[in-house]
Simulated scan of single mutants.
Amino acid sequence: QPQLLELTGVGPDSAAILLVAAGDNHDRLRDEASFAALCGVSPVERSSGKSQRRRLNRGGNRQANAALYRIVLSRLRWEERSRAYLQRRTAEGKTKREVIRCLKRYVAREIHRCIAGAPLPVPDSLAA
């Protein structure tokens, strides 16, 4: 999927891990929320008393989650839009860890759009 490699921060290793996580039948991923849950970046409520927090889902494909983390770190280093988002959210009182959680979800949404727009792969035996 060359369009996946055109996204900022997505290298061949991360793209391969995310494509394997999505599988051949990417129609089973109904929407970006199901892809986010598959990658373990769907938020889970962790509230106590007056504090309302969310944390990442500990389930899902841990390799895909790590690939999203690497993409976010490279975007924070090289992409101005992500750095501005980090500064804005930390000024609002979010921790860097919470901002990375949000960015991983945004990246998962972007990657799902890329994967879902791709045609299904046709095996060589059927293409002839």
Rank of each mutant, 00 (worst) to 15 (best):
F35N: 07
L18D: 06
L76Q: 09
A36C: 07
C114N: 10
L18I: 07
Q52T: 15
R88E: 14
R75T: 08
K96N: 04
S74E: 09
I111D: 02
I115D: 02
R54S: 15
L120P: 00
A116N: 07
C39W: 04
E32R: 14
R53Y: 07
A127F: 08
L73T: 11
N65V: 03
T95M: 02
R70L: 13
C102P: 02
C39L: 07
C114D: 08
S125N: 01
C102T: 12
L19I: 08
P43M: 05
S74V: 09
N65L: 00
R77Q: 09
G49Q: 02
R77C: 03
L86S: 07
T8H: 14
R81A: 15
G40V: 11
A108P: 12
N61D: 15
D27I: 04
S74F: 10
R77M: 11
S74P: 00
R46C: 10
A128W: 10
E6T: 15
I71A: 06
T95A: 02
R75Y: 05
H26D: 01
I111M: 06
R58K: 15
A66S: 09
Q63H: 14
K104S: 04
S125L: 07
A84I: 13
R54H: 12
L38A: 12
I17H: 05
R77K: 15
T8A: 14
R81W: 09
Q63N: 13
T8M: 10
Y69W: 15
A21K: 01
R46T: 09
T90K: 04
E98I: 00
A128C: 02
L103G: 06
G23M: 03
C39P: 11
G49H: 02
R28E: 12
A16I: 03
D24E: 14
R77W: 05
N57G: 05
L120W: 04
P119C: 03
R55I: 11
E32H: 14
K96V: 12
W78M: 01
L7Q: 13
V122W: 00
S34F: 00
L29P: 07
D31P: 06
E92F: 01
D27C: 10
S74D: 12
L29H: 14
